[in-house]
């Protein structure tokens, strides 16, 4: 028996909104420690990895490890019907060929129940080694969203260059060019609005803005986002998910292979 109940059901809604257009089908791996998912987009250029700790749920029971393969677009469509204040419960028996989703509006005495068929997916998992990145940038997630959105009006790819004097995001296109320079913020009065930049070694790497704009759909999950970069390895864009007490209950990480000059 698997049962996971989340009072802040909007977290599940937001996770699905953040991944459904990038990966169409994926498997959730459920164990006693929590739920996780890893999937590549169809072009194999980017990868999304989601983890939700068992502690992050208000009730969590997993009697034995389960793999729940499903169409994420369908799941997202159904979960979209839940209200932002709804409690969401996911249930599956051990030999499940479907899962049950239960939505309970907080203030009302009604229960909405949906069943979703499961799929057998040939998932291709990639082993991602622990990496010491040369550059780690933490910035407000809305700022990252805006940088990606605004620069994609000009060009298709962004070049991120990080050196001692700050980080620059630049693009060029038929219209012209654009660039945004970010410097580390001085005070820690508003941690959500802080920009911190750690540089071991300067880097300059280019990425397709189309994918970064997909990643930025996770903005509502966290006020801050981190970008980890090293020469010749994929970029990692991470949104850490917190509970009401500000404890970490999971994350959504996106990996994107760089563009290489031919």
């Amino acid at each position: 028996m698997f049962e996971a109940r989340m009072v802040r059901g909007f977290i599940i809604k937001r996770i699905l909104e953040a991944i459904k257009d990038l990966v169409s089908e994926a498997s959730w791996d459920c164990s006693t420690s929590g739920m996780s998912l890893q999937a590549m987009d169809t072009s194999h250029v980017s990868l999304v990895s989601v983890s939700l700790k068992a502690d992050g749920f208000d009730k969590y029971r997993c009697d034995r490890n389960l793999t729940l393969g499903m169409n994420l677009a369908s799941l997202a469509q159904i979960v979209k019907a839940a209200g932002n204040d709804d409690v969401i419960t996911i249930k599956a028996p051990d030999d499940a060929d479907k899962i049950t989703l239960i939505f309970e509006p907080k203030s009302e005495t009604e229960t909405w129940e949906y069943e979703i068929k499961l799929m057998n997916l040939d998932s291709e998992y990639l082993g991602i080694p622990e990496t010491d990145y040369s550059v780690k940038i933490n910035l407000p997630s809305h700022k990252f969203q805006r940088i990606c959105r605004d620069l994609s009006q000009i060009g298709d790819s962004v070049t991120i260059s990080a050196a001692k004097d700050g980080v620059r995001f630049s693009t060029t296109g038929d219209l012209g060019s654009g660039n945004v320079k970010l410097n580390q913020t001085a005070s820690a009065d508003k941690p959500d609005e802080a920009v911190t930049i750690k540089i071991e070694e300067p880097i300059i790497l280019s990425f397709a803005l189309k994918y970064l704009n997909h990643f930025a759909r996770a903005t509502a999950l966290s006020p801050q986002v981190s970008l980890s970069l090293s020469k010749d390895v994929p970029l990692v864009v991470e949104y850490v998910i917190h509970d009401d007490d500000d404890d970490e209950i999971g994350y959504i990480r996106y990996y994107l292979a760089p563009k290489i000059e031919e």
Partner: peptide, 14 residues
């Protein structure tokens, strides 16, 4: 022009 590289160039299937 820049070439978009696949993730398989960096990470191996488990």
């Amino acid at each position: 022009t820049a070439e978009q590289i696949e993730l398989f160039a960096y990470y191996l299937p488990k």
